[in-house]
Each structure stands twice: as structure tokens, then as C-alpha cells.
Design a protein around this nucleic acid. Structure first.
Lengths: 224, 224
DNA sequence: ACTATTATCGTACGTTGTACTATTGTCAAG
DNA sequence: CTTGACAATAGTACAACGTACGATAATAGT
């Protein structure tokens, strides 16, 4: 391996797998994953399309690397905190990250081999639960439950056509309600009205369910 | 609307939006959503590619219709049961259906307008919760929590590369463990071993978390 | 200076979604 | 019985896609 350590001063004009993946993530964020083509990505990097294939073997591998780059952004459960705050921290971080990169959720379904950041993450979470006194199989259950909640919430959030409470109010009046005849959908009408009145904040909505789940898991520890 | 009621005796050779969507779902089930092209779909229906466009305006609309067809398979919460068993029934059904059509989960992220079956489903679930005594906003919270769990679980299940406990054991030994040096991933090693020993059944794993969530929601009712 | 290796890319092939157009089959109005 | 309208079925063509292949340019080791 003759590749020396002396990094080129500026990696701005030099390609690398890092730069390819980073730019791919940026492109997917702004244009959606359907707008991410090898040619467009190469163009954004000021390179020819085929040059990318020196850093990724295929588009599939690129997508895998993008997902792992997303996992790298998620905060690991801090070791010093008690298990509930540690898990809350990492869950909240995960939701934020997935909200920034909504395309990542849809991609997970098809790609099955976890990257290194993904593995590190899982290890840290399992460690946290085990050290908190959860028996092995209970830790597995807790893991499934927590991850399901995080991913599912992110998936639902990604499929919402609005971002702010204002947009929700507008859309409800202009789009949703006209599609919901009150005699056929009385409860959805009621819900929509209440939601507009109360406002909607994804962070609050998320922590509500999260705290409920964490509290429900507490008695499963054998706190020794 | 001159379209008479007299259905052609056999709709086997005759096209219709129904038949197009149904066959598209079948194709996605067997070949994955990437294997679903308009030409292949038309071929499976014994038609020319462009003929499909008399029944769907675009591939996007086809995908939307496919998702709604999936929702149609999900059992509604039975009205006569108490709320916990009703919600359990529909959640279990949802997981089964999504496990049959894994591609549907990844599709939800990008499509934002719910179809009629989707709306019916949401109405029925909200009705069940409200009738059980959940205040409006609590019903919304419960809805988010339950749906997050169901979708997230389905998403994780879809990204598992094995289906049976046997395959899990084989893969663990041949693929997973070799990627997990015990000094770097002690807890994942421990987990993997325990999981292989205990076996893994998605239905059990799912109901574990589900029952926990349902129990945690119970006190939020104002049972009047 | 010469060679081997690494990095870059142009061209070309097969496949995709679908716009446009042409061709049928059916039926109501004359 | 004719005619005109409309619903249904396709063929062709085009731009964009992933990428196999081979050619070039840059760099490093001798």
C-alpha cells in the first residue's frame, strides 16, 4: 500500500470515496433519491461519469455507503448517563438525522448488509442496555422495540407533505378536509381540527411515544 | 357514463385498472420493486406496454394504487372487541401484510397522498381509540406510536436477510460472526449467540413490543 | 528514462418511463 | 345502414439511466 499519509492540502479538486459519498448524500437531500444519477453526481463533482467507478464498484455500493454515512451522523448513547437518558439522546438524534435525510429510510428496506458505522451503533446501544441490567433476550426485545419506533416514526414523518404547523393548517383546510366527507370520516375530521388547533411539532410528538416506551421498558431490567 | 353493469363473463383477457394493479403487486412480490417495469408488467398481462396507460396515468400513480391495494389487505380493528384486542388484531394483520409485500414499506417514504383504503383504515383506527375513551389528542399520540411501531418493525423485518430460525443460525455462523471481532463487538457477539440459541420468530418478537405498548397506553384513557 | 500502476473519462449498449401517433372495436344518432 | 365519436390497444421514438469496455493521462518505483 504505497498510499502515503500526506493528504493533499485541499481535497476540493481531488476525488475520493469520501467526497463521492458526501456529495451523493447532499444531492439526495436536495433532489431526492430519484434525482441522484451517476451522471448528475459526477457533474456536481466536476468529473466524468465513469470516474466515479474508481471509488465505488456500483451504484448499489454507493447507496450502501450513503446509508452508513447517515448512521455516522447519529449520536451514540453517552456512556456516563443513566440508560433512559442515554437511549433518549440517541433516539432523538436518530430521528433528527433521518428527518434530514428522508431518502435513507426508504433505502434501508432493500439493503441488507450493515456498514461499519451501523455496527458500531448497534454495539453501543446493546452495550448500554446490557449494562443497565437488561438480560440478553430482554435487551434484544428492547432493541427491536426502540428501533422500530424510531424508524417507523421517521418513515411516517418523511411521508408527511408538510414541515411546519402553518403548512399543516393550510393543507388541512385546502387539501385534506375536502377529501374527507364528514359523514364518512367523522373521526378523521375531528382529529384534523384538533391537530390544527393544538399545532404539531414532530419533536414533541416523538418524545411523547419515546418516553412512554422507555418507561414501559424500565421494569424489565434486573437492576441487581 | 354509458359503462353498463354487465361485466364481461371472464375478466381474464380483458384489462382493467384492477387487473393491472393486482398483477403489478404480484410482480413486485416476486421480483422486487426494481424488477417492475411497465414493459414487464404489460408482458405479464399479455398486452403492449402503452396499453397500461389507459388505466394508470403514470407509473407513479400505479405505485400509489399498489400501496392502497396493500392497505386493503390489512384487517380493520373489529368493532365489537375491547380496544386492546382490536388494536392488536389490526397491528398483527398489518405486520403480516407488510411482510408479504416488503416493497410497500420503502415506497411509503416517497408517496404522500393516502388512497381511499388508507383513509378508511385510519378512520377505523381513530374511531376505535376514541370510543375506547382516549381524548382526541391522546388518540393522535396513540396512533403515531402504534403506527410507528408497526411500520418500523416491518421495515426492520424487511431488511433482514433471513426468514427462518435455521437461516438465521447459518448466516450468523457463516456471515455475521466473521464480521464481528469479539474484542470490538463483544455485546453483539453475545447477542448473536443468545439469539441463535433462543431462536427467532418475527411474530413473537412483534407481539412482545406490541403488548408492551398497548399496556403503556391503557392509563391514558379517560375510561369514563 | 522506462515501466507499472493509478486515476480519469468517451463511447456504446441495453433498459427505462412515456409523448406522440396510428389503428382498431363499439355504439348512438342520423 | 351509415356515420361519427369515443374507448381501447399498440408501435415508434426519445431522453435519461447504469455500466462494460477500452483508451488515455498522470504518477510512482526502479
Amino acid at each position: 500500500m504505497p498510499a502515503r499519509e500526506h493528504r493533499q492540502i485541499a481535497s476540493d479538486t481531488v476525488l475520493s470515496k469520501q467526497r463521492v459519498v458526501t456529495e451523493a448524500v447532499r444531492l439526495a437531500d436536495s433532489e431526492g433519491v430519484d434525482g441522484l444519477s451517476m451522471r448528475r453526481l459526477a457533474g456536481a463533482l466536476g468529473a466524468g461519469a465513469m470516474s466515479l467507478y474508481h471509488y465505488v464498484a456500483s451504484k448499489t455500493e454507493l447507496l450502501d455507503a450513503m446509508i452508513d454515512a447517515v448512521f455516522e451522523e447519529i449520536e451514540l448513547p453517552p456512556e456516563e448517563a443513566d440508560w433512559q437518558t442515554a437511549m433518549r439522546r440517541r433516539a432523538v438524534s436518530a430521528r433528527e438525522v433521518l428527518a434530514r435525510h428522508p431518502w435513507a429510510i426508504g433505502l434501508m428496506e432493500s439493503r441488507t448488509t450493515p456498514g461499519p458505522a451501523n455496527l458500531r451503533h448497534r454495539e453501543a446501544v446493546t452495550a448500554c442496555l446490557r449494562r443497565a441490567g437488561f438480560p440478553i433476550l430482554m435487551a434484544t426485545h428492547a432493541n427491536w422495540l426502540l428501533d422500530s419506533y424510531v424508524y417507523g416514526f421517521a418513515l411516517q414523518e418523511a411521508s408527511l407533505p408538510f414541515d411546519t404547523a402553518d403548512e399543516l393548517a393550510n393543507l388541512t383546510e385546502d387539501v385534506f378536509l375536502p377529501q374527507l366527507p364528514p359523514d364518512e370520516f367523522p373521526y378523521l375530521n375531528e382529529s384534523a381540527a384538533a391537530l390544527v388547533a393544538a399545532g404539531y411539532d414532530p419533536r414533541e410528538e416523538f418524545t411523547f411515544g419515546l418516553d412512554l416506551v422507555l418507561a414501559a421498558l424500565e421494569p424489565l431490567r434486573t437492576s441487581a
